[in-house]
Structure formats: structure tokens, C-alpha cells
């Protein structure tokens, strides 16, 4: 178990350096802080006009026009098995790139960029709900909060419809 944690951490850091810190854009859903690696984030958007896509999986909120590029919006709440946003509640989005495609992750709000130290990293507890474990790389222990690291690749694989 311990060993596995170590390997995982190494994978994350990749480069040398004892206690390397990584930067994460923090996003908040239902008062939980999540982190998305800052290098993967292209944009942070306010509420957008979204075109619904009939027959798409429920997690796909629709698509939107981001400066001439079509971006697929994913409702992260639904992806995490949370109830959908109540009417009137605004949302924000972080746009990430995955295999040359842009995806807009709709979340409740977007916070600041966090510097998270490797020494604070830990694997997700085995008791975490399956859906959550599936899309998270691990957890950073901050003094006051826990930050769940989102794995964009896995977040974009739902069911058999892989974002290959």
C-alpha cells in the first residue's frame, strides 16, 4: 500500500526535486474543492449560451462557441453523481484540452490557483464513492481543506463513450 502511494507520487512529480509543488486551478462543487492541473486549463468562463445536444449522455450539457471553436460542455455535478444545479444558480466553467478537443467543465465556481506540495498528496481513500475515485487522481491535505485532484482524461470517459 505504502509503496503504491510512493509510486503514484513519483509519477505525479515526474521531475526531480524533493517536495515539488504543482499548481492547480481550484474549482468548487457543493462546497468541495477540486483541483485541475493549471497547465490543462485554457480558459475560465462565466455563464455561457449552451446549445443542448439531444440524445447525448446526461453529463453532456451541450456545446458552446469559444472564439470560433466548438467546445463540449460537461456538467461535472452530474458526472460526479450530484443533483443538477437548481434553477437560477449560475455556473462557471473551466475549459480544458484533451486530445486536441476542448471541453468546458461546468462547475459551481472557480477559485484561485493553488500551489500544492507533493508531500501533502495522498491517494484517494478506498472508501470514497466509486464515481469519485474513478475521476480523481488523489487528494491533497491542506490545513483547512481537502483538495480532490480531478483527472481530466478519466472525467471525460463516461460509460462506453470514451473521449478517445
Amino acid at each position: 500500500m505504502n509503496e503504491m502511494v510512493v509510486t503514484k507520487t513519483r509519477n505525479l512529480s515526474r521531475q526531480d526535486g524533493r517536495d515539488k509543488a504543482e499548481q492547480y486551478v481550484s474549482i468548487i462543487i457543493e462546497n468541495q474543492i477540486f483541483g485541475v492541473p493549471v497547465l490543462q486549463v485554457h480558459d475560465v468562463l462565466g455563464p455561457q449560451r449552451i446549445t443542448r445536444i439531444p440524445l447525448a449522455p446526461p453529463e453532456v450539457a451541450g456545446s458552446l462557441n469559444l472564439r470560433g471553436r466548438i467546445v463540449t460542455a460537461i456538467d461535472v455535478r452530474l458526472r460526479l453523481g450530484l443533483p443538477s444545479r437548481k434553477e437560477g444558480e449560475t455556473s462557471m466553467s473551466v475549459v480544458v484540452e484533451h486530445h486536441n478537443e476542448f471541453y468546458s467543465l461546468m462547475v459551481d465556481s472557480v477559485g484561485e490557483v493553488l500551489m500544492l506540495k507533493e508531500s501533502e498528496f495522498e491517494r484517494s481513500p478506498a472508501t470514497l464513492e466509486h464515481r469519485w475515485r474513478e475521476v480523481s487522481n488523489g487528494i491533497y491535505r491542506l490545513d483547512t481543506q481537502l483538495v480532490v485532484v480531478l483527472d481530466v482524461t478519466r472525467l471525460l470517459q463516461f460509460g462506453r463513450f470514451e473521449a478517445a
Partner: peptide
């Protein structure tokens, strides 16, 4: 987007 490619209707 690849995650919608299975929708043959589009």
C-alpha cells in the same frame, strides 16, 4: 466531440 461520436444522428 469524440464523446458524442456514437450519436449517428448527427
Amino acid at each position: 466531440s469524440p464523446i458524442l461520436r456514437h450519436l449517428s444522428i448527427f
